[in-house]
Design a protein around this nucleic acid. Structure first.
Lengths: 299, 299
DNA sequence: AGAGGTTACGGGCAGCGTAAGGATC
DNA sequence: GATCCTTACGCTGCCCGTAACCTCT
């Protein structure tokens, strides 16, 4: 009869997923269970909160009003847990978006640290390019994200997080003078991040500025793939130093010293989240991420 | 595992009752059920919230911190209900303290009106003198109260509510000149409110000022009793006009016209509640009470 | 001994998952 | 016909109430 926190979590999940069945998956239950919980909530309030058409789920005016209360109640529950509970017992979900580079750096450390501090908290991880992640974040489908450069939305908070120097890398056998110029490098295929990303944009500008028209770029979304391609002799690549240290030490890759004009800016990452986040866990995750990034930097 | 609104309501009830068994009675359940709910809450948080000695229940530091969250969550649930739900479905409890005079005036109207507007809301009524009610209110054991004169606590909000003229009343057979002086009245027993109440204090001052030392006062907490005493010929009494209109019309009582010096101030009632009330229903009850009082005044 | 909180235990019912049913594209 | 929400139904497990127990005054 009365409103119940379970129902509220379900309601929030449905609203955020815009679908009963997706919400059910996310809540680790079945779709009928979600359906019944929403029905119970609606009966308890005596008002319909969600309008279900066959293709979409939308909020009724009452639903929109209730959403605000629901979010505040869920946030309050979590705040209370964080303030009082044994960290072991804190529950909740953090939806985190990350760029692949971070995955290869310290994300495993963060995941481990978080699951140590908050074993009962679930992490919903989305790995994608900065652009895609950014859109999810702006659409409030993520609670926070680690991505390149600040997000210039007014409602978003950005913190500098970490930065990774890029080094030019080539197969050991490649014929390259040192220091190499952009022109030298452009004799080979250049393997880089996908088209719209910040480093690739910077690189194409540099190539244009140097008057190089016929550069052959290979854009890939996968950092691991890029490294593999260089190791296989496909071409040269600017890569985050930490990803290739081991391969260079082992002689599988060669670090190419370049002229200042060919140096790329380090990849600067920020942690970004909505200013009015109602997920009290976000603060903890941010703090933990800053620590992990700092530890990683020192190594 | 997770915190549940049922547990929170139970926690709040236990804290407010300072007892598991009293809370159980108030929640219409059994004492073991309360015990288990509190245990579940504590296990869920991994912290003990309540310290139980054999004679008293007190809050641990964590409990005190949690109390704040619990109150906010309960308030939020109720706000959401008030904002969205069918009024029929709004649940909750309002703890109301009233002076007896109000009971005889329009309290039945208020109760009826409230149970019409919010059939699922429970009213916990305490009828006592203004002084006793005031203490309960200050101790936050009441959500609001209708009592005489403003409560001068800093955290309390007072609204003028209604005022009842007092008329001197006597048994019809009594020998009294008109207009009667205080001295005339004081030849008989004067039946009045209990010692510490505002009208009785005013009356004793008036008697002192008139140099009357040997007045025989009968102080009683019950207005109905007082009326009965006058009807039975025990003495005279200042009574709220509305309570004796019918008896006067029927000839069972006589209204005594008195000189200006013997007139008593009307009984002024205010509605008082804590400024930071977390019970969203209080506002509705206040509004409803003001309406009922106004309607009553017009009759 | 009595008041009040805890533990033990059996039963009822809420809520779940499976499966079938409808509606819309 | 595919997708997605709803309804039906049997079952499990949780929570409740009764009752016995413990502890402190």
């Amino acid at each position: 009869m009365a409103v119940d926190l379970d129902q509220i979590e379900t309601f929030l999940a449905v609203v955020s997923a815009r679908s009963f069945s997706k919400a059910a998956r996310r809540l680790n239950t079945t779709q009928p269970a979600v359906s019944l919980r929403i029905q119970a909530l609606e009966t308890g309030l005596g008002k319909r909160l969600l309008e279900r058409t066959t293709r979409d789920v939308s909020l009724t005016p009452e639903g929109r009003a209730f959403l605000d209360y629901a979010e505040r109640m869920a946030a309050l529950r979590q705040e209370a847990q964080l303030a009082i509970a044994d960290p072991d017992r804190v529950t909740g979900t953090v939806r985190l978006g990350v760029s692949e580079t971070v995955v290869h750096a310290w994300l495993p450390d963060l995941i481990e640290e978080l699951s140590r501090r908050f074993p009962a908290v679930e992490l919903e991880l989305t790995v994608d390019t900065t652009a895609a992640t950014r859109d999810l974040l702006v659409g409030r489908e993520l609670d926070l994200a680690f991505l390149m450069g600040p997000v210039a939305e007014p409602e978003m908070v950005n913190h500098p997080l970490c930065s990774f120097p890029l080094v030019w890398t080539a197969p050991p056998a490649l014929d390259l003078p040192e220091p190499a110029t952009l022109k030298d490098l452009a004799r080979y295929r250049i393997i880089t991040y996908s088209r719209r990303t910040r480093p690739t944009v910077a690189l194409t500008r540099m190539l244009q500025a140097a008057g190089i028209r016929d550069a052959r770029l290979i854009a890939s979304t996968s950092l691991a793939t890029n490294i593999r391609l260089v190791e296989s002799g496909v071409g040269v690549a600017p890569l985050p130093a930490f990803t290739v240290e081991e391969a260079i030490a082992a002689g599988r890759l060669r670090r190419v010293i370049v002229v200042p004009d060919a140096e790329l800016e380090p990849l600067a990452f920020t942690v970004t989240h909505p200013a009015a986040t109602r997920n009290a866990l976000v603060g903890r995750v941010v703090a933990c991420a800053l620590e992990c990034a700092a530890v990683f930097d020192k190594k």
